[in-house]
Design a protein around this nucleic acid. Structure first.
Lengths: 129, 129
DNA sequence: CGAACCCTACGACCATCGTCGTACCATCCT
DNA sequence: AGGATGGTACGACGATGGTCGTAGGGTTCG
C-alpha cells in the first residue's frame, strides 16, 4: 500500500515525458515515432504509458477528432527539480555539496561542461554581494 | 524481462544500504533498530531487503555464529556515482550543467551549502592550469 | 528438560512498471 | 458496400519492490 519509490517515474515513463516536453504537444503516434528512433516498442505500450502519465498528473490531454493530444501538465523544470531533490535526499543525505562533489570528481566531464558549471557558480557569486 | 528502471534500487533498499554504509558492518538486527528510529517496519522485511541487496551485489555477508554480518560490497561513492549518472542521463539528458543549474536555481540552498559548492568548483579550477 | 529468545528460511500478497494482444470504432477511398 | 487505415479501450502477464507471517533451528537460563 505504502508505495515508496526512489523515483515516482519509471524509465519508459521518463522517456515518453521527455518526448512530450520536446514536442510541446503530441499524439501517441508522434511520441511512438520518436521512441522508435532509439528502440523497438509497440504502439499500445506508448499509449498505455501516456495514459498513466496523465492519470498521475504529469500530462494533460484533449480530444482532437478521434485521437488525443497530450501536453505537459507541469513545467519540465519543476519535475526535474523534484526528481533531483529526491535523489539528493535519499542518496546524498540531502547534501547538495556531496552531490556536486561526486559529480565533478567521479563523472568524466568535458572541459566545456566544467566551464558551464563554473559559470553557473560564478553567476551565483554575483547575486551574493 | 527487460527490466528498465530509472533506478536499480528501491527506496527501502537505499535506506538499508545507507545504514550499512554508516555502520561499516551490520547484522539485520542492527539495521532494523536504526530503521525503526524513523518508521515502523518488520524485522523480516529488513532481512529480506538485505538478502536482496546481497544477491544484487551491493552487500556481502559472512556467518558469525548463527547470524549474518553484512558489509558493503562496493564503495558508497561508486554506487552514488552510478545513481547520479543515471539521473543525469535520463532526466537531464546527460548534461551536468543542466543538473547544476537546476540544483542551484531551484533548490533552496543555505549559504553554507553554496559556499561548499563554490569551494569544490574553485578546487577544480586549480587542477585546470 | 523445557520455555524464552534470537535468527534464518521460505513463501505469500499486493501494487507498479513495462510490454503487448485483441477487440472495436470511426473514416476514407474505391 | 466493403476493405484499409488509424485510433482507442481493455485486459493480461512477467518481473520487481515492499511488506510480512509462519515455521523451525540454535542458545541460554531456570
Amino acid at each position: 500500500m505504502n508505495r515508496r519509490t526512489l523515483n515516482p517515474l519509471g524509465e519508459t515513463e521518463m522517456e515518453v515525458l521527455q518526448h512530450v516536453w520536446a514536442l510541446g504537444s503530441a499524439s501517441v503516434a508522434d511520441v511512438h515515432a520518436r521512441v522508435l528512433e532509439s528502440r523497438e516498442v509497440a504502439y499500445t505500450t506508448v499509449m498505455t504509458v501516456m495514459k498513466k502519465l496523465a492519470s498521475k498528473g504529469y500530462l494533460t490531454f484533449e480530444k482532437s477528432g478521434n485521437a488525443y493530444i497530450y501536453s505537459a501538465a507541469q513545467p519540465p523544470e519543476e519535475v526535474r527539480r523534484d526528481l533531483l531533490q529526491g535523489l539528493m535526499d535519499k542518496v546524498f543525505q540531502g547534501s547538495p555539496g556531496a552531490l556536486v562533489q561526486t559529480l565533478v570528481r567521479d563523472e568524466s566531464l568535458s572541459p566545456d561542461e566544467l566551464d558551464s558549471i563554473r559559470q553557473i557558480v560564478d553567476a551565483l557569486r554575483q547575486d551574493d554581494a
